[in-house]
Simulated assay, not measured.
Amino acid sequence: MFYRVKDVTPLAEYRLQVRFVNGETKQYDVKPLFDEWEAFKALTHTAGLFEQVRVDAHGYGVCWNDDIDLECNELYERGISITA
């Protein structure tokens, strides 16, 4: 099952607030990825890049550029639910 992304907002300390098509909202911490994937380190080294996050085509994830992206299921399954 795909948990398609409706919109994404960059937050402080390299966190994302992700709203899904099903109405749920989650926060996802990007910081652990800096140690796992070399490409993600660019988010800390390039001024303003983290804030350029956007929903990719058809909501199947979010991306920053051609090298840095996250799929919708990763965001949903590892994100922390936010209650309104």
Score class of each variant (00 low, 15 high):
residue 52 Q to I: 03
residue 62 V to P: 01
residue 58 H to S: 15
residue 12 A to I: 11
residue 27 Q to D: 10
residue 38 E to I: 12
residue 58 H to G: 03
residue 70 L to D: 02
residue 34 F to R: 01
residue 12 A to C: 09
residue 68 I to V: 14
residue 83 T to C: 05
residue 75 L to M: 05
residue 19 R to I: 06
residue 75 L to E: 06
residue 28 Y to E: 03
residue 9 T to P: 04
residue 50 F to D: 02
residue 84 A to W: 01
residue 6 K to L: 13
residue 44 T to S: 11
residue 71 E to P: 00
residue 43 L to R: 01
residue 83 T to L: 13
residue 57 A to I: 14
residue 82 I to D: 14
residue 28 Y to V: 08
residue 23 G to R: 04
residue 21 V to H: 07
residue 29 D to V: 02
residue 84 A to L: 11
residue 43 L to Y: 01
residue 65 N to Y: 04
residue 79 G to Q: 08
residue 50 F to I: 04
residue 16 L to D: 02
residue 18 V to M: 04
residue 46 T to F: 05
residue 29 D to F: 08
residue 54 R to S: 11
residue 26 K to C: 10
residue 39 A to C: 07
residue 4 R to K: 15
residue 26 K to G: 06
residue 71 E to W: 03
residue 40 F to P: 00
residue 35 D to K: 12
residue 30 V to P: 01
residue 37 W to A: 05
residue 83 T to A: 14
residue 14 Y to S: 02
residue 27 Q to I: 13
residue 4 R to A: 14
residue 16 L to G: 02
residue 11 L to A: 11
residue 72 C to P: 02
residue 72 C to S: 15
residue 39 A to N: 11
residue 83 T to R: 13
residue 29 D to A: 08
residue 32 P to M: 12
residue 55 V to L: 08
residue 35 D to F: 06
residue 44 T to G: 03
residue 21 V to A: 09
residue 60 Y to E: 09
residue 54 R to F: 05
residue 41 K to S: 05
residue 64 W to G: 02
residue 22 N to I: 11
residue 40 F to W: 06
residue 49 L to M: 12
residue 11 L to M: 15
residue 32 P to Y: 15
residue 53 V to H: 11
residue 54 R to Q: 10
residue 51 E to H: 01
residue 28 Y to C: 03
residue 79 G to M: 13
residue 80 I to T: 14
residue 70 L to E: 06
residue 10 P to L: 06
residue 5 V to N: 07
residue 49 L to E: 03
residue 25 T to M: 13
residue 13 E to F: 09
residue 61 G to D: 04
residue 66 D to V: 00
residue 56 D to I: 08
residue 49 L to Y: 04
residue 43 L to M: 02
residue 56 D to H: 06
residue 24 E to F: 03
residue 56 D to Y: 06
residue 57 A to N: 14
residue 47 A to N: 11
residue 28 Y to A: 01
residue 42 A to M: 05
residue 15 R to M: 14
residue 66 D to G: 10
residue 54 R to C: 06
residue 35 D to Q: 14
residue 83 T to V: 15
residue 37 W to P: 00
residue 79 G to S: 12
residue 6 K to D: 11
residue 61 G to M: 03
residue 22 N to S: 13
residue 10 P to T: 05
residue 56 D to R: 14
residue 7 D to P: 00
